[in-house]
């Protein structure tokens, strides 16, 4: 175990002794603050045209209509709950978080995770491939440590790095929000076993970030695999980023076919289950998690076999 810790410390050192890592982190923090600034700027542009009571009662009638048209239980329940919450707001005079409030901003800020994924993919692609590019792979592997263990240390380090970036993104969003946005007087409500209760913004935002982090782990592992397999940094970064942006589009392209149920990007966004409808018919959270685990297992197996069995001849 202590050997594993030594190996992880080595990998961590190799990431953080590079200036480029700090540039990535600086860009990430910059992007997060920019998001906060733009949110506050755009909220100042929109003047409140309608009192919230009117908005909510409009929404309530939309929810009731949707509920009537719903095709399955999940969807029906969703709209039923939403309509009930809206009714509860009107009866008890509890305003929803305004578009301009800190609460709504923090929930929206989970899209910042995209930057963190992007930068983690860069690190994950390079953590094995760079050793080949630098030629250091030779001095790294001729040691009394099994190659597989070196690879696992690299993978764990990559996950720790992605967690670090996710935390920076979250904390950055909070600080940015405190600096640029007003708190507002809205309250989040949610349905827990037929009771409407107040939901803390911290729990709700952590839930959204947590689901986004699952996507981050999958993309990181994918980039890690391609980097290990191809031993080429550029290919791994390119392919991962390409899939990051096009992968989900393909779900809609292929939605007529049954294989789309087993397609990775049908499942990477788990927050789809917080919506009335998931991306395609006939998938459940359990199914998605199972598919993701299988993909993860295959990614890591391929990386492991490629790293431990192939000759090092560069």
């Amino acid at each position: 175990m202590s050997e594993m810790i030594r190996l992880i410390r080595n990998e961590w050192m190799k990431i953080f002794k590079r200036n480029s890592t700090f540039i990535l982190i600086a860009i990430l923090i910059g992007a997060v603050f920019l998001f906060a600034f733009v949110s506050s700027w755009s909220s100042n542009q929109q003047s409140q045209t309608m009192p919230w009571e009117e908005q909510v009662s409009q929404q309530m009638s939309v929810y009731e209509q949707q509920e009537a048209q719903s095709e399955n239980m999940h969807e029906k329940n969703y709209y039923q709950d939403q309509a009930a919450i809206a009714r509860h707001r009107l009866e008890n005079d509890i305003p929803p978080p305004q578009h301009t409030s800190f609460i709504q901003y923090l929930l929206d800020s989970k899209s910042n995770i995209t930057f963190a994924v992007l930068f983690t993919v860069i690190i994950a692609s390079g953590i094995v491939a760079s050793e080949f590019a630098w030629g250091t792979i030779k001095l790294l592997t001729i040691r009394p440590v099994r190659r597989g263990k070196i690879l696992w240390a690299k993978y764990i380090t990559t996950l720790l790095f992605s967690l670090t970036l996710a935390i920076i993104t979250y904390l950055g969003a909070i600080i940015g929000g405190l600096v640029f946005l007003e708190k507002g007087d809205g309250v989040l409500l949610t349905m827990v076993e037929d009771h409407i209760v107040e939901q803390s913004v911290w729990i709700e935002s952590l839930r959204l970030y947590g689901l986004a982090f699952v996507n981050m782990i999958i993309m990181t592992s994918f980039a890690f695999m391609i980097g290990t397999l191809s031993r080429s940094n550029a290919l791994a970064i390119g392919l991962s980023i390409f899939l990051m942006f096009t992968g989900q589009q393909l779900v809609f392209l292929f939605q007529e076919y049954t294989f789309v149920k087993f397609y990775l990007f049908t499942h990477t966004d788990l927050s789809q289950y917080l919506q009335p409808k998931p991306m395609i018919e006939g998938i459940s959270p359990l199914f998605s998690v199972t598919v993701l685990m299988l993909y993860l297992f295959v990614f890591l197996l391929i990386s492991h076999l490629s790293f431990t069995k192939r000759d090092i001849a560069t």
Binding site: N10, M13, W134, T136, K138, R143, P144, V145
Partner: peptide
């Protein structure tokens, strides 16, 4: 002898020492 160029000689040796035990 390919080394990690972005680290000092000493850090490189620390790195290899950790691998060695």
């Amino acid at each position: 002898p390919e080394m990690y160029k972005f680290m000092s000689g000493y850090q490189n040796l620390v790195h290899f020492a950790r691998l060695q035990g």
